[in-house]
């Protein structure tokens, strides 16, 4: 990591102010991503990983609000942008890929209409050159016979193909950063393999930074450079892929990795994390994982600070595993 990172998130807090109380969906999360780098943002449902992604792209609607923290993108503080400035960035310099491609694509518009719209929203180009760029984007994500496919409607595509189209739309303006929110979760393994292959290739070739949000550690293992683990809206630990997967320090990441079937002897009971994710509504101060944690001590009712046990590694825990 030389020079300034492309994106630096510092102490981000995003809370929902509901009738039932304040839900701290993202509570003090920090990480950074450099150009051409792939960051895996890992957590289970309710960990705030998707909300972190939405916060970066300014997609938080009331009753949600970013209450604290900085999101520094190439010298711009994204938490302070007005609507016009956002329009110039979203879909142009920062693009997003969502989990369900059927919800992303408009079912009544042809693929070419949807891609051309994305191109012409940000660049003053003719329809012909917009089509040429659309065609090129489809080729990049591995869609055969792009001319024919451009004239098709979303329902004529399979799930994997639709996700490729969604990725093509994200790529079409040559963004600096792509935020991908579980884009392969709904797909079969062979199709997931193809999509991971395309994304990896695109990032290597164009130097696009990628934040890959997922609950699946094994996807991250082959894809990402850095990993950031979240739990109940809080930052847990971060480091390189090899550090996190082979030497997890936080008891939560360790438990998560240990509970994957391939890390266990076949047919034997899996090492499991007891209990379940706490409700974010009733979450008090202190480490949110302490009730499920085997290393917890009375000290854990206080919130641990983020420490840096070794260069490039950050951790929020009083009792790291050795």
């Amino acid at each position: 990591m030389s020079g300034d990172p492309l994106l630096r998130v510092e102490g981000l807090r995003m809370h929902f102010f509901t009738k039932a109380g304040v839900v701290k969906a993202v509570d003090d999360v920090s990480f950074s991503v450099g150009r051409g780098e792939i960051l895996g943002l890992v957590g289970e449902s309710g960990s705030g990983k998707s909300m972190t992604g939405y916060s970066i792209l300014g997609l938080i609607d009331p009753p949600g609000r970013i209450v604290d923290g900085r999101i520094d993108f190439d010298g711009i503080d994204l938490t302070r942008l007005d609507a016009a400035a956002w329009r110039a960035i979203r879909g142009n310099r920062i693009a997003m890929i969502f989990q369900d491609p059927m919800m992303t694509l408009n079912p009544v518009l042809r693929i070419d209409t949807q891609i051309i719209e994305a191109v012409q929203a940000h660049a003053d180009v003719s329809r012909e050159s917009a089509i040429a760029r659309a065609r090129e984007a489809l080729v990049r994500v591995g869609i055969a016979s792009p001319d024919e496919r451009l004239r098709a409607y979303p329902h004529q595509f399979s799930g994997g193909m639709r996700q490729r189209v969604a990725i093509a739309i994200a790529l079409v303006n040559g963004p600096d950063l792509i935020i991908a929110d579980e884009p392969t979760t709904a797909l079969d393994v062979t199709i997931q393999g193809q999509i991971l292959f395309e994304m990896q290739k695109v990032c290597r070739e164009s130097g696009t930074a990628l934040i890959w949000i997922t609950h699946d550690l094994s996807v991250i293992a082959g894809l990402a450079d850095e990993v950031c683990v979240m739990y109940a809206g809080r930052f847990v630990e971060s480091g390189t892929v090899a550090d996190i997967l082979d030497r997890p320090l936080h008891p939560y990441s360790r438990g998560l990795i240990d509970s994957v079937p391939s890390r266990n002897e076949r047919g034997r009971p899996l090492r499991q994390i007891p209990g379940m994710t706490p409700s974010l509504l009733s979450l008090g101060p202190g480490c949110p994982f302490r009730e499920r944690c085997t290393s917890a001590s009375p000290r854990c009712v206080e919130s641990p600070d983020v420490t840096e046990p070794s260069p490039g590694r950050r951790l929020r825990c009083f009792h790291p595993s050795a």
Partner: peptide
């Protein structure tokens, strides 16, 4: 195709 925890930084060949 199965993504493996062990396969750190690999190239996907679909």
């Amino acid at each position: 195709e199965i993504p493996r925890l062990e396969a750190t930084k690999r190239t996907y060949i679909p």
